[in-house]
């Protein structure tokens, strides 16, 4: 799932400064699951913004709403509030939702309430950790199921660097050395040859190097033109 964290309040307040009537829009997808951008958070943020405005001696009308996912057109039909009747929408979806909504409502400023951070798994109640970087070229088959792109702070592909210190990464003494974990796991699996094999430099076109990435499923894809109707 995608993890996003609410932006610092000062940044949000500054963003909303020119507006008098704002809709805080939650998303029922990933950000609800990571407890940062669902309906409850939208409700709380709207209240907090109204109070903040009052503190600053100005009035702000802030309502909240939430839809199932802000990254699908159809769910916007379920909005209770009409974004066009607001000066701006503060979306607390991930960056995908904010941009997607901006395309759907070109006449309304859609502002990001969140910083979208990483692809996570839940490691404990209320704790999420990055598990995938969406590199487009998964190597987990030969790394014992542990991602070196994510779990190694340098995203190395040929093994541990000299920065491993008592099993921890030089970047953060709280963080385990990803490659040491890979080594231990491969050893346990009897697959150390996977470690020994030289890995060629990665093709970053599959990652951020190739512009906007798309998934087009031939058997399902609608033509873009009709899809926009």
């Amino acid at each position: 799932m995608i993890v996003a964290e609410r932006k610092p309040m000062d940044e949000i307040v500054a963003m909303l400064a020119p507006h008098r009537k704002v809709l805080v829009l939650g998303c029922g997808g990933c950000v609800t699951v990571c407890l940062t951008g669902g309906e409850k958070q939208a409700e709380l943020l709207a209240g907090q913004l109204r109070l903040a405005a009052r503190q600053a001696g100005r009035t702000l009308e802030a309502a909240f709403d939430c839809i199932t996912r802000q990254c699908e057109r159809e769910f916007f039909d379920n909005l209770t509030e009409d974004p066009r009747t607001y000066d701006a929408v503060l979306s607390i979806a991930c960056g995908a939702g904010v941009q997607y909504m901006s395309e759907l409502y070109p006449e309304v400023p859609i502002l990001p309430g969140m910083n979208t951070t990483f692809l996570a798994s839940n490691v404990a109640g209320g704790v999420w950790e990055e598990y995938c970087r969406g590199c487009g070229d998964c190597v987990l088959a030969w790394t014992g199921g542990i991602c070196p792109i994510t779990q190694c702070s340098k995203s190395l592909i040929n093994g541990t660097c000299g920065g491993t210190n008592n099993g921890k990464c030089e970047v953060n003494p709280e963080m385990e050395c990803g490659w040491l974990r890979i080594y231990e796991r491969l050893k346990a699996l009897g697959q150390l040859d996977n470690y020994r094999t030289l890995r060629a430099a990665r093709d970053h076109r599959k990652d951020r190097g190739g512009g906007v990435r798309r998934l087009v499923l031939k058997d399902m894809a609608e033509s873009q033109e009709s899809g926009n109707e």
Binding site: G28, G29, T32, V33, C34, L35, G38, E39, C66, T68, N122, G125, G126
Partner: peptide, 12 residues
């Protein structure tokens, strides 16, 4: 059920 995101918070 239409609003539930299956986030497991209730369970926790």
């Amino acid at each position: 059920i239409d609003k539930c995101a299956a986030c497991l918070t209730c369970l926790r």
